[in-house]
Design a protein around this nucleic acid. Structure first.
Length: 487
RNA sequence: GCCCCCAUCGUCUAGCGGUCUAGGACACUGGCCUUUCAAGCCGGCGGCAGGGGUUCAAAUCCCCUUGGGGGCGCCA
């Protein structure tokens, strides 16, 4: 028997930025498809006309692409199972709803949304489960109401007759899930404006796109009951489900804006590298069989399996995400890090883009000298400050013998530097070393003072790096500023 | 109110009945390296939510309690 081709999908609604939770779901789907040599489909769930926007869809695609995720079929590239936007599939939904209507598995409702809402709230207020029955809607079906619907161009809403029985399925990550009889009442599948309700549209789409595995967030677990009943009504074997647990904020609540950055865009803008971002993300709810943590997307694909998906929720730990980004910044090639840092440097006003381009070799060395002290690209400019901003005027202490010696060394270095024709790394270092050897100051005191003289700070890149990258003029100038009018 | 899910160091996790005095990573912390900070290297702290079973044997299986999360919409 030929094993059927794996077809998975990521089906976001274009109502905002791509959230890290969605990003992780997309990643898992992508990895699974790649691993199984199957197809990964992007489908836009835009049946909520009021909240869906084209811009959101574009941003969604942009974020996905940034993460290194691409799809085999989708609204932008098409495919054999299109269209891939729910708003473009209206006809199919209508048709399928008709079928259920004809078979007596669904019924029409002539109530207005507000009336149903009222019904819902009343049930809740009475402490009852908000379960609808066909009975409840009978009173709305009057000749007047039918006429009103016609005049307003409305079609009756369609409600599905939820069978009152127990449903069970095997979830690939949770195991067997059983929904007791009566956990749900009848539910809407078509709105009076003619558009389908989410739970109905997903089922129709998953059927017609021949989706084999549904990997999605835990928050959809309860929805599975409705979907199972729908599959049953159509007489179709449902796909396999895998419900991945939620991503939580540090307070244990579902991750949201108040926890800080939650969209992929924000992480990109803060200077996260996509490979670091997805690497951190993949570890939230999944683990490498050998416990490896730092891994490329190729390795994720190679090792990914649904069996290794974890069933409990995960707290998003920004500290660890940042640490991991730092690992990548140190490890990735210098040209790229520099390139990524330029916009931030320009923004800080240290260089124009033209200057950066003209001095790219120098810039790379400068970036290289600070990259191990940052965790995001965004932090690079502030570390580069030593090269762009001179120190404030500082007064060197010359009270003790040691302090006087330090000044002597500084002066000596300045003299020799002045005579230097070629600003060569080794030559500069030699001058410093020889001066130290000759005058023999307190080494620690000397180097610390020298650093202070050059940068005005107590910490930063290696001194020889600073010297070389600063260049002759800046070095002599800064020494002059500190030592010029001293003994 | 009803339904579903989850429960190993502060956090992410390994563990799928004996190899666990529970392993790794981040964070924290001590040391080394070093002219500084960082990076790096070595070490330390720290956990099976509680209670019942099942079993010769339980972090691992079952039940209850507690705690957390999600859902019950003409939202997705």
């Amino acid at each position: 028997m030929v094993k059927e081709m794996v077809r998975v999908r990521f089906a976001p609604s274009p109502t905002g930025h791509l959230h890290v939770g969605g990003a992780r779901t997309a990643l898992f789907n992508y990895l699974y498809a790649q691993h199984a040599a199957g197809k990964f489909i992007l489908r836009i769930e835009d049946t909520d006309m009021e909240r869906s926007t084209k811009e959101s869809e574009e941003k969604l695609i942009e974020s996905l692409l940034w993460m290194g995720i691409s799809w085999d079929e989708g609204p932008d590239i098409g495919g054999p199972y299109g269209p891939y936007r729910q708003s473009e599939r209206k006809f199919t939904y209508r048709q399928m709803a008709e079928q259920l209507l004809e078979e007596g598995k669904a019924y029409e409702v002539f109530a207005y949304p507000e009336e149903i809402k009222k019904l819902h709230d009343a049930l809740m207020a009475m402490g009852k489960a908000p379960h609808y029955t066909e009975e409840m809607f009978k009173e709305f079906d009057t000749p007047e109401r039918r006429r009103a619907f016609k005049e307003k161009g409305l079609t009756p809403a369609v409600f599905f007759k939820m069978p009152r029985k127990e449903y069970a399925f095997i979830d690939l990550v949770k195991g067997e899930v059983v929904f007791k009889e009566g956990s749900l009442g009848d539910f809407a599948i078509m709105r009076s404006n003619g558009l389908p309700i989410y739970n109905f549209a997903v089922v129709i789409d998953d059927i017609s796109m021949e989706i084999t595995h549904v990997i999605r967030g835990d928050d959809h677990l309860s929805n599975t009951l409705k979907q199972l009943a729908l599959y049953e009504a159509f007489g179709i074997v449902p796909p396999k489900f895998a419900h991945v647990s939620m991503i939580l904020g540090p307070d244990g609540k579902k991750l949201s804006k108040r926890h800080g950055a939650t969209s992929v865009e924000e992480f990109r803008d803060k200077g996260f590298l996509p490979e670091a971002f997805i690497n951190y993300l993949v570890l939230l709810g999944w683990s490498h069989p050998e416990g490896k943590e730092i891994m490329s997307i190729d390795e994720m694909i190679r090792e990914f399996s649904i069996e290794r998906l974890h069933s409990s929720p995960a707290v998003f730990d920004v500290t660890k995400a940042r640490w991991m980004n730092g690992v990548y910044i140190r490890q990735v090639n210098l040209e790229r890090v520099t390139e990524l840092a330029i916009p931030y440097i320009v923004e800080k006003g240290y260089m124009t883009e033209e200057q950066a381009k003209a001095n790219i070799k120098w810039l790379r060395k400068a970036v290289d000298s600070v990259r191990k002290s940052v965790e995001t690209i965004e932090e690079i400019p502030e570390k580069l400050e030593v090269y762009f901003k001179g120190p404030e005027i500082i007064e060197l202490p010359v009270k003790t013998e040691e302090e006087k010696q330090v000044v002597l060394v500084l002066k000596k270095i300045r003299e020799h530097l002045e005579e230097l024709d070629v600003w060569d790394h080794k030559a500069v270092v030699d001058i410093v070393k020889n001066a130290v050897k000759e005058i023999k100051p307190d080494r620690k005191l000397f180097y610390q003072t020298f650093r202070k003289v050059l940068t005005g700070m107590d910490e930063g890149p290696e001194l020889v790096e600073i010297l070389f990258l600063l260049g002759k003029n800046k070095v002599t100038d800064r020494i002059d500023r500190a030592v010029g009018n001293l003994c």
